[in-house]
């Protein structure tokens, strides 16, 4: 029996008139990597952003349906969105480090969740950077600007920043698509290590990446989930013809 970390039940997302996500129900298993694949505009990123209520920031966006984090429905109007986002972290396509030092980037979250003690903060910063495999590169320049790091390093810093608030789930929206191949492989290695401690949902355009890092894969098309299964099954023996067409490169 696999524990479910996060689960969407009949989730619909509307942008004004546009119905971007149709009745999507997906379970994300604890300490597994789930990949969401599909062509551009298929709703996978929109769906991802709904999971930590990021779409609340877009006025015209309406999300209906249930999202269960453990035994709590987090898509209600009475949900404490701030507390929720502490439990569901997010990493974007473009690294978005704050215009602060490396140390302050990591300490930002914990500080706001009540960690004041300097020693404790130091420890969180070191642990988070170690877990994100960027400690060795940054330990001598912790108080230098994070913007001086390379794109790949910035992205790992953003992952470290997310880890620092100890979420249960990490959402990643094409985390490597703005990076060079070497940085990409580092991020992929990192994802495989992180799943020992976190449940990860990753949106990717790169099917090889999905095949390499994920345990399960969901194929999105026009706002619907066409197929959701073990990654191996999706890539070697998909049930749906459209999935097969997509992964063999017939469209997309």
């Amino acid at each position: 029996m696999i524990d479910i970390a996060l689960s969407a039940k009949q989730l619909n997302v509307h942008y004004g008139e546009k119905h971007a996500v149709h009745d999507v129900s997906l379970d994300f298993a604890e300490k597994e990597v789930t990949a969401l694949i599909g062509p551009s505009g298929c709703g996978k990123s929109t769906f991802l952003r709904s999971l930590n209520r990021m779409n609340d920031l877009i006025p015209s966006c309406r999300v209906t349906g249930d999202i269960w984090l453990k035994d709590q429905n987090i898509n209600g109007s009475d949900t404490d969105v701030v507390a929720l986002r502490k439990n569901i972290g997010m990493v974007w396509q473009r690294p978005n480090p704050f215009h602060k030092s490396i140390y302050e980037n990591i300490a930002f979250g914990p500080r706001y969740h009540g960690v004041k003690n300097k020693k404790q903060l130091d420890e969180i910063v070191e642990q988070s950077l170690r877990k994100a495999a960027i400690w060795e590169e940054t330990k001598d320049r912790l108080h230098k600007s994070a913007l001086a790091l390379s794109g790949g390093q910035q992205q790992r810093l953003c992952i470290a920043r997310t880890i620092a608030v100890k979420p249960d789930v990490i959402l990643m929206d094409e985390p490597a698509s703005a990076l060079d191949p070497i940085s990409t492989s580092k991020i992929e290695e990192l994802i495989s290590e992180l799943k020992q401690d976190y449940s990860i949902v990753i949106v990717t355009h790169n099917m090889h990446q999905a095949a390499r890092v994920s345990d399960k894969t969901a194929f999105f098309l026009n706002g619907h989930v066409v197929e959701y299964d073990k990654t191996e099954t999706i890539f070697t023996n998909p049930t749906n013809q459209r999935t097969n067409d997509y992964i063999t490169g017939r469209f997309g």
Binding site: M54, G89, H113, R161, T162
Partner: peptide, 27 residues
């Protein structure tokens, strides 16, 4: 201000006020 910065702060569980005070103003 790059949109990603605010989202980054919200995603860490910062409130709107914390985001304005700690990210938007200094940046």
């Amino acid at each position: 201000l790059p949109a990603g910065l605010k989202e980054g702060s919200y995603a860490l569980g910062a409130t709107r006020w914390q985001t304005i005070y700690r990210i938007v103003l200094p940046t």
